[in-house]
């Protein structure tokens, strides 16, 4: 068991190393890509600032709190992108028949797909989120206790797992329908936009949906309540402690569904 795990890791790092090298081939494009991502997110933050300039706060959240909430989501999303983003167009491998090649290789197809790419371009988002978070931390005069650092760490790992699982789940749809890209835009894009704002902005049924069914609330909103000492919300701050367990559980479920899809898969035909 341990031996096969180690072998898997070794293969993963080897394949990922190749992927990084290919991306670094085009230096100029690589730097532009990173800069581009950082600027896109900075643009969203500036829009938030402009919006709150005349209003002061949204549902009791000031600009710096909002920036913190946003940066926390971007932080785990950037890690998700590095590790899992290529899952959103796994359908291409299926349609083109490349996926069938993965099936005859002596490693688990999931390991093969996850090792296909290591998206270095997402470092632009990581850069933005870390800078934004430090600014917000200083502006809000936060001084986290030890348990809050644990919640923070849990939110990053849990958030990465939750969003990664979503991508895995979406890609699994391709096993049945051979298409998943559209589902990605229909699900992930609105979900990620929702996450930029406090959940209390949205109607009750959406709050319940993203807490219990597709647990996006555990990516940033619930941990942020704990991290910003927000006690007057409709959710108790203790919810923030559960990001990591929810992430692990959700990942286990999605991985299971992916494998079910794999069993069902019968090639794209011809």
């Amino acid at each position: 068991m341990l031996k096969s795990c180690l072998r898997g890791l070794k293969i993963y790092f080897y394949m990922v190393g190749v992927s990084i090298k290919t991306q670094l081939q085009y230096r100029y494009a690589f730097v532009m890509n990173i800069l581009g991502w950082a600027m896109t997110y900075a643009g969203t933050a500036i829009t938030m600032w402009v919006m709150l300039y005349s209003f002061g706060s949204i549902r009791g959240w000031t600009f710096w709190e909002l920036l913190f909430l946003f940066a926390l989501a971007v932080l785990s999303w950037s890690i998700t992108m590095v590790l899992f983003f290529h899952f959103h167009n796994m359908d291409e491998y299926i349609v083109e028949g490349t996926f069938d090649r993965f099936l005859v290789r002596p490693i688990h197809p999931f390991l093969h797909v996850i090792a296909l790419k290591f998206d270095v371009g997402a470092f632009g988002q990581l850069l933005f989120s870390i800078v934004a978070m430090i600014i917000a931390y200083v502006q809000l005069k936060l001084n986290w206790q030890f348990y809050q650092w644990l919640v923070f760490l849990g939110a990053i790992i849990g958030g990465t797992l939750i969003q990664g699982s979503m991508l895995v789940l979406i890609s699994a749809a391709a096993f049945w329908t051979t298409r998943s890209e559209r589902l990605f835009w229909a699900l992930m894009w609105p979900a990620r936009n929702l996450m930029n704002y406090p959940l209390t902005v949205f109607p009750r049924f959406i709050q319940l949906l993203v807490t219990f069914l597709l647990p996006f609330a555990f990516v940033n909103f619930l941990p942020a309540l704990t991290l910003l000492d927000k006690t007057k919300e409709s959710f108790d701050p203790f919810w923030g402690f559960f990001s990591l367990p929810v992430g692990i559980a959700f990942f286990a479920i999605c991985f299971k569904i992916w494998n079910l899809g794999l069993d069902h898969y019968k090639s794209a035909g011809s």
Partner: peptide, 11 residues
């Protein structure tokens, strides 16, 4: 390659 400039334009 218009990467970064493009994002400023869209923003």
């Amino acid at each position: 390659e218009t990467g970064g400039v493009e994002d400023v334009f869209y923003f």
